[in-house]
Design a binder for these strands. Structure first.
Lengths: 180, 180
DNA sequence: CCGTTGTTTTGAATTACTCAAAATAAGGGC
DNA sequence: GCCCTTATTTTGAGTAATTCAAAACAACGG
């Protein structure tokens, strides 16, 4: 057993896979990043981090569901706790688009923004249009010491554009709308 | 009595003031804007609209408290209902900064943004730095048809800058930080 | 292998908001 | 000025997302 093994609560680790596929802990450098963030490496944390890698822009609840499949004993509160720890440690970022529960993503540190579909809620990353620190200098900051700027774009995702077109207009339309 | 009189639920309108100061309904053109938006003019709506004029960036709860002082019978749900109607009708705008309850403001239609104090939660309006439709064109919109862009700046308000400086640094500092 | 200290579980509470039915009142018509 | 229709508000619950706290548990350094 390597030093990176992690006990799964109530679940015995199959020893066969332990050396072949590497212990649950390793595999992607997940444990490394957790440890590098100054946090203890635990099964719930690994599971959440992996789930987050698989499905960015997930709610706590969605992650909870994902985590439950490989780590059945995990509680929702644990997921909230893990996400809070990740967010504090800079391992994850929390975004809260209007009208949605909080979403989490691993992509962190770079200044990127989000576009949200007003119809289905799908979220995609959008790289900053202007540069490293985008709209970070408002015209008049009213004396505030500005630390960050957060941009949320709202619009229709490609799929919803198509669905709306066929549903409302009848004949499918040419879809050269927001395609650029 | 003019045509714009509004019955206050359970409260009789003092007739003396009715002709002198104009009925509760008028005074600021509040009723006019409500009616112009296609909504019926009611006492709760007038009260909420006035409260919103006095204190922009207020939560539903704060408005509820404000409204209660001149219109005691008003329910919180009514305030939510009024705000929903206003928002739908374009009379008010709802913003939802991360970590805060929804805030409402009358300023609507112009494309302006907000700066939020990370310490005390104070919100101020920020006019768009770039023009009419600001960061509205992301570099790569991933096929989305972009309809709107919403910018939230985060930083320290002037008051909190001072407080933090005196608390943490000891001697008050020169405060030429984010002053522009 | 053990102890310390950070994590997770368990159980419950809270905040912000929404839903639905019955009571009420605004505003147009007579 | 009064009545009717229909929008609005009240009243009474209910829900989703998140947070709090105490006790059980486990990571990791020694």
């Amino acid at each position: 057993m390597t030093a990176t093994e992690v006990t799964q609560t109530g679940v015995t680790q199959p020893s066969a896979e332990a050396s072949a596929l590497a212990p649950v802990a390793a595999g992607d450098g997940l444990s490394e990043s957790i440890r590098a963030a100054g946090l203890r490496v635990t099964a719930p944390r690994l599971a959440v981090l992996r789930a987050l890698a698989d499905a960015p822009h997930s709610t706590a609840d969605r992650l909870f569901t994902a985590v439950r499949t490989d780590l059945p004993g995990t509680s929702l509160q644990a997921v909230y706790g893990v996400l809070a720890a990740f967010t504090d440690a800079g391992l994850a970022r929390k975004i809260e688009p209007s009208g949605s529960a909080a979403l989490f993503e691993r992509r962190v540190g770079d200044n990127h923004h989000h576009i949200v579909c007003t119809r289905c809620g799908t979220v995609r990353d959008v790289d900053c249009a202007v540069g490293e620190a985008p709209c970070l200098t408002p015209d008049d900051a009213a004396g505030f010491a500005v630390r960050a700027a957060e941009v949320t774009y709202w619009g229709l995702c490609p799929a919803c554009q198509v669905e709306l077109a066929t549903t409302l207009t009848g004949p499918p339309l040419l879809s050269n709308k927001g395609a650029r």
